[in-house]
């Protein structure tokens, strides 16, 4: 076992490329999961069961099956149906879709925690449905669930390496390419492992602070 600092230095250009792609996936994936999760959560409360049941079934299915298989599904099956996306786009959509089923549960909990008096007040003021949601319920719900959403962003960060399986050039794939060209396995993998901890730990501290500030 010998640790070679020059191998670390050689890896740096690729490493920063990987970090950028990882963060890009993370930001876009979060946006997809936040918006789609809200759509699911509103679907859970739809007045008719013909909406509620399919939404429940679909989110349950996506939530309990592995992201990796879903990635392969989207990557290999969509082209068969005539939809062509790049690996990066497919991966971002897959991760956003997968995590939207988690954020949907978070939104649901947040919405259920809004006191029923708020719904009744909105009804008494005869606010239209979209005003009830966007002016009364969601502002109160989202404040409470921000830390929980933050936790899922961190979880999503730790799932971005899966996208290497379909060849997205994020951190893990960059380290594999580096290893394939220099035969140095130790340094690139260790560097990205530490990089994940260095990103995830401060982020989790931030979420804990948010929790203290926002929830009470």
């Amino acid at each position: 076992m010998n640790w070679d600092w020059s191998a670390v230095a050689d890896f740096m250009p690729r490493f920063w490329d990987g970090v950028l792609i990882t963060l890009q996936i993370l930001v876009l994936g979060s946006l997809i999961s936040f918006t789609l999760g809200l759509v699911w959560a509103i679907g859970f409360r739809a007045p008719t069961r013909f909406v509620r049941w399919p939404v429940n079934a679909v989110t349950e299915f996506i939530r309990t099956t592995p992201l990796l298989v879903q990635l392969f599904f989207l990557y290999f099956v969509l082209p068969e149906w005539g939809v062509q996306f790049s690996a990066l786009t497919t991966g971002t959509i897959a991760i956003g879709l997968h995590y939207s089923t988690y954020t949907a549960q978070v939104y649901r909990a947040g919405i259920e925690a809004v006191p029923p008096g708020q719904w009744e007040a909105a009804k008494a003021l005869s606010l239209p449905a979209h005003r009830t949601w966007f002016a009364v319920i969601l502002p109160q719900a989202i404040r409470r669930i921000t830390p929980a959403l933050g936790n899922y962003v961190i979880a999503m960060l730790k799932d971005t390496p899966l996208l290497a399986a379909i060849g997205v050039l994020e951190m893990l794939q960059q380290s594999r390419l580096e290893s394939a060209s220099t035969f140095q396995y130790t340094e690139p993998l260790t560097v990205i492992g530490i990089a994940f901890i260095l990103i995830a730990y401060p982020a989790s501290l931030l979420v804990r602070t948010l929790e203290r500030r926002l929830v009470r």
Partner: peptide
């Protein structure tokens, strides 16, 4: 918890 299971 900080690192990814796949990388580990």
């Amino acid at each position: 918890r900080g690192t990814s299971a796949l990388i580990l």
